[in-house]
Write a protein that binds this DNA or RNA. Structure first.
Lengths: 132, 132
DNA sequence: GGGGTCGGTTTCCTGTAGGTACCTAATATC
DNA sequence: GATATTAGGTACCTACAGGAAACCGACCCC
């Protein structure tokens, strides 16, 4: 599960600790593990949706992976799953209040993207040009 | 290289496009691909460092992966590599100005972490308790 | 001439994320 | 009775990221 970033947490004994102390690491596994941002974004953009809708609206994700990610997001309290025991079963997903609290973070992200992405682009072409 | 998030970019034709249009996706590959945050954090925390120092200061990363990530970060313009053609070669890495522009983003991240991580913790234990 | 240092590079090997395909229960429709 | 539907679950397989270890060149020390 915690395969995305450095291995062991740490007892946070201040300064001899290397980058495990990097304070953002745990958040990344929660919010920025693969597919989670597109899912959250889709839920935020289209509102509450059932499984198949979500499956269509998020890009090319397969049903298996979608359920995996949704379980994780549900476990972390970022999305709410409501199951209706009807005859063709109906399940709806929506963003939780905790999930909505990520909004400023996403805003900061898009903001940085708008301001600095072209600069990254330029750096890349310059780098590639320098290494013929 | 772009293995972390949804497949193809998109010509951004507004509304029929699904989650590829998620505006944060490209930034994630740049800033939040594996090991990049610990590296950036270490460079920011300890200042300019040479390769072996960095290798020690970032947690358990291997030299191979460290060079890969540093190349990527250099190419994206987030770190600056200075090579001194001395006898035991000396190479120093430091955060670029563009890299420093990520500071508010990291701040937002740590801020969210401090405010909401316990809530995630609670959600997890509640979820695990509900699924005996 | 043997060993050490620095900044990598190369080769080999493995774990695992993720894809494909097929299965289910319960009903409704044809 | 055949077929479709929903929300997944399961088995199998593959690709690739990343770890381990050996190697390198140019010089220094001993």
């Amino acid at each position: 599960m915690a395969t995305q970033h450095p291995p062991a947490p740490h007892d946070s004994t201040a300064d001899d600790a290397p980058a495990q102390a990097c304070p953002v690491t745990p958040v990344l596994d929660i919010v920025f593990s693969r597919w989670t941002t597109p899912i959250l974004w889709t839920l935020h953009h289209y509102g509450r949706q059932r499984f198949v809708e979500l499956n269509r609206n998020v890009g090319t994700i397969t049903a298996k992976v979608l359920t995996q990610r949704l379980r994780q997001l549900e476990r972390d309290g970022l999305v709410v799953r409501t199951y209706h025991p009807e005859v063709p079963p109906r399940v709806e997903y929506e963003i939780s209040e905790l999930g909505l609290s990520l909004a400023p973070l996403f805003a900061a992200l898009t903001n940085w993207s708008e301001e600095h992405l072209p600069e990254v682009e330029r750096a890349r072409t310059a780098f590639d040009a320098a290494n013929t």
